[in-house]
Write a protein that binds this DNA or RNA. Structure first.
Lengths: 142, 142
DNA sequence: AAAAACTGTAATGTTTATTATTACACTATG
DNA sequence: CATAGTGTAATAATAAACATTACAGTTTTT
């Protein structure tokens, strides 16, 4: 799966830990290890769907607008990666019964697979992700 | 997901419909719409795991060795695409609590997701795929 | 025994997708 | 009005997927 998903989760988790002030795309991009423009692109999508708000100008940035438990990984998957599970199907030979129908058969099967994935991912909200990040941090060897 | 999965399923379905004679990589590649070398590469993997056998030389090719219901889509996913569900994680900043732990947290979550996908994909054997292909063919408008 | 029809696989080239970078318009703050 | 931000389009660079070429090895046919 494409890394927009990871960047969205990463950004939201970052914002979750800064609930009282705005975070800039520069800060987030430094944490995520990618270019600030990509962060702004991903966050612009999250903003459009009401998960966060942004403010331009000095002192501006991004901040969470919802409760952490109101956003789950399925929401984010749908925004950033819907259809990513579908295997690629080269254009095949329509004269052959297999070639003519395989694409649709696999499409249908993986539509079901994506629904199942949804049920699983709905169990993880940003709150859970924050908790898991903290757990990892504490269990880390040093 | 990468198209090796599709090509493997496509090839096996093709072989399922030719149970009595060997099929060449040329025939299969024409049905699947890709280069014969790719088919041979994918089939070489399926052979290594005992799903099919091959024979070189004139009159050679590939043929199923198992019952159609003994091979399911999870088997094929594992061979061709294990880990494909994992979202890409750019190397992030280890100094930041989010950057330092996000990768592992997501990895763990998607390991679980892949297990769930497995339970779903095990429900589809090549036999079911053949049936679905036939259904599609018959329900086609013309 | 030589030609023809195959598989097996490595090496290389091409195309496509992903990601980074640049550029700049726009907005808010001090 | 300078500074620090977002928003977004256009372009460049990199990486992944895929096609192609090349050729060694194996059977069958003649």
């Amino acid at each position: 799966m494409n890394s927009d998903f990871t960047l969205a989760v990463h950004s939201l988790t970052y914002l979750a830990l800064q609930p009282d002030r705005m975070s800039t795309s520069d800060c987030i991009s430094e944490s995520a290890g990618v270019h600030p423009v990509r962060i702004r692109k991903v966050l612009s999508l999250l903003k459009k769907h009401g998960f966060i708000k942004s403010k331009e100008g000095t002192g501006g940035g991004f901040i969470f607008t919802l409760e952490l438990s109101e956003v789950n990984l399925w929401d984010i998957y749908m925004l950033t990666s819907e259809g990513a599970l579908q295997p690629r199907c080269p254009d095949s030979n329509e004269q052959c019964i297999v070639g003519a129908n395989m694409k649709r058969v696999l499409f249908t099967i993986f539509l079901g697979a994506e629904e199942h994935l949804g049920e699983y991912l709905k169990n993880y909200t940003i709150k859970e992700v924050v908790d898991l990040v903290n757990q990892e941090q504490n269990s880390g060897c040093d």
